[in-house]
């Protein structure tokens, strides 16, 4: 298999706060991910995983360094251009699901299509189809809160993939779920996101799901410390 670079971050710096109380979240960070792979970002709390993910997703602009996603430079884009970029290229799965409780399950899944300008009918049809794929046929019209945590996260996966984005970004997708449900969710992410042109980046603390990764990037103090192919070669403190 030939893989092209999907995401490349070079010498990215991000810090928060004022001069006296400065927190360096990313420190000359280099990172890359390929199409067709599922890469995990692991590391201790506060090491900068979410920050790196936000930079890749174009929701956070670095103070310096380069970000390239599918050949497009994100640093230097305006907010509006970043919005358009996200709309076309990104799917999100959040730790806390972020489903809109006042909308039905299917309406939540329709959102990415609707903001791309799809008609209500087309969006509904596609959303219904993907909900069936994640095993939620028959639950379309209910409210998200009526579902279990695992089911809600499946709705979120459906929402993240309904518009077939090339880059799927998941921040702690299993940490609000129990072990078995977490495993099911990872199975689903792996299965549904397997596409030669798609790249999946998953931030996690959860060592039990390491086995779903093609590669694991270990972060420490705002830097990628190393990248391994086999989770068993990771620092045992994570396991």
């Amino acid at each position: 298999m030939t893989h092209t670079i999907a995401v490349a971050a070079r010498q990215v710096d991000i810090s928060f706060g004022s001069e006296e109380a400065k927190v360096i979240a990313l420190n000359h960070t280099d990172f890359s991910a390929h199409t067709g792979e599922l890469i995990m970002l692991v590391g201790p709390s506060g090491c900068g995983k979410t920050t790196l993910l936000s930079v890749i997703a174009g929701t956070l602009t670095p103070q310096s360094g380069e970000i390239e996603v599918f050949g497009q430079r994100l640093d230097g884009l305006s907010q509006e251009e970043l919005t358009t970029f996200r709309r076309k290229n990104l799917g999100f799965v959040f730790q806390s699901f972020n489903l809109i409780p006042t909308l039905s399950v299917v309406e939540n899944v329709m959102i990415p299509l609707l903001i791309q300008g799809a008609s209500h009918a087309v969006a509904k049809k596609k959303a219904t189809e993907i909900l069936e794929k994640v095993g939620l046929k028959g639950r379309e019209e209910g409210k998200p809160n009526a579902l279990s945590g695992g089911q809600q996260q499946r709705v979120a996966i459906a929402r993240a993939l309904v518009h077939e984005p090339p880059l799927l970004i998941c921040d702690e997708p299993t940490s609000a779920l129990d072990k078995d449900t977490g495993a099911q969710i990872m199975e689903m992410i792996r299965e549904l996101s397997r596409a030669p042109n798609r790249c999946v980046v998953v931030v996690t603390h959860d060592f039990r799901i390491f086995k779903y990764a093609d590669r694991i990037a270990e972060m420490e103090d705002g830097k990628i410390k190393r990248v391994v192919d086999d989770p068993r070669t990771l620092d045992p403190t994570y396991l």
Partner: peptide, 12 residues
């Protein structure tokens, strides 16, 4: 939720 919709790429 508006923030989530915004993150997903909804324009202002």
């Amino acid at each position: 939720y508006f923030a989530a919709i915004k993150a997903m790429g909804a324009s202002m």
